[in-house]
Nucleic acid binder design. Structure first.
Length: 288
DNA sequence: GCGACAG
DNA sequence: ATCTTGTCGC
């Protein structure tokens, strides 16, 4: 007969794996309604013709009726160094083409879900859903037309990263931005960086992320002339990769696109102000 | 078995 | 994610 510690270990193992399998089922289920093409009613402002990719010609009359993409949302989460379970999620909205911040909000909470590679959405998605819900309730005029997310889209072990998750749940077009490569389909960060360097002389600023299987997962791109390290762009929801690249280019003042960078700055700032939530989220120590 | 593994 | 100052270079 197995001893107690073996049974405990087995029980723990069982609950953990079933948890992940539930998560996988959710990802696979949501993935069924994922849209990997342009599916929006606006057009892009100031189309920069620097892209090597083609834009589909549109009938002139139809083009006149289209409103431009104006409000772009950015989402990011920061954590307390003293208590890693304390998180600040922030949502900002920038107005194109000037990229002025027209809206920002944040949510300071304690997270009980740990980070597991491949399941980032189950940890961070609730924060954004809450922040967007606030905007909706107040019928805020700056409700974003598109989301830029600090995390991958289809560049993910099961082709359904945080940006896809958020795009599908909010039904908003979304773009995933990774600052590091999540190794998938034989792709490695060092290998990709080598390719970028090789193309540097030819003026190419991005390389297609094609895995061993032949699938295109996104692109690695040098978003600034002076950035040595690329960012990894992938489809979130309702945007083609070409469109995602164009939007990233038009919002990159620095390495990280402005909507995400601003969200990062704001969440960091609030974490810094309240690294310890005693008296805010916690029962005060005097209540112990 | 070992290493890799978005934030 | 976070730990961390100065410093090498355009």
């Amino acid at each position: 007969m197995a001893n107690v510690s073996d049974e405990d270990a087995a029980a723990t193992e069982m609950s953990l794996s079933s948890n992940h399998e539930d998560w996988i089922k959710i990802q696979e289920s949501l993935k069924k309604v994922l849209i990997e093409e342009d599916d929006f009613k606006w057009k892009l402002p100031n189309p920069k013709s620097t892209s090597s990719t083609q834009s589909i010609p549109i009938e002139e009359e139809e083009e006149r009726e289209l409103e431009e993409l104006k409000y772009v949302g950015g989402f990011d989460v920061s954590f307390s160094k003293e208590d890693p379970s304390i998180a600040c999620g922030s949502l900002v909205v920038l107005e194109l083409p000037g990229m002025k911040v027209t809206y920002h909000d944040f949510s300071l909470v304690r997270l009980y879900v740990h980070y597991v590679p491949g399941f980032l959405a189950f940890r961070e998605a609730p924060l954004l859903l809450d922040l967007l819900e606030n905007m909706k309730k107040q019928a805020n005029q700056f409700y974003p037309q598109l989301l830029m997310v600090d995390g991958n889209g289809v560049l993910h072990p099961r082709g359904f990263g945080l940006a896809c998750h958020l795009g599908v749940l909010t039904d908003l077009p979304a773009i995933g931005i990774g600052k590091n490569l999540h190794h998938v389909d034989g792709l490695t960060q060092s290998g990709v960086i080598q390719l970028l360097k090789a193309k540097e002389s030819s003026g190419e600023e991005f390389v297609t992320l094609m895995g061993r299987s032949g699938r295109t997962w996104g692109v690695a791109m040098r978003s600034t002339k002076v950035s040595s390290k690329p960012i990894f762009v992938s489809i979130g929801h309702r945007v083609s990769l070409d469109t995602a690249i164009n939007i990233v280019k038009m919002t990159c003042k620095y390495r990280v696109p402005e909507p995400i960078r601003q969200a990062d700055i704001i969440s960091r700032e609030h974490i810094r102000k309240s690294p310890n939530l005693v008296g805010i989220l916690e029962i005060k120590s005097s209540d112990y």
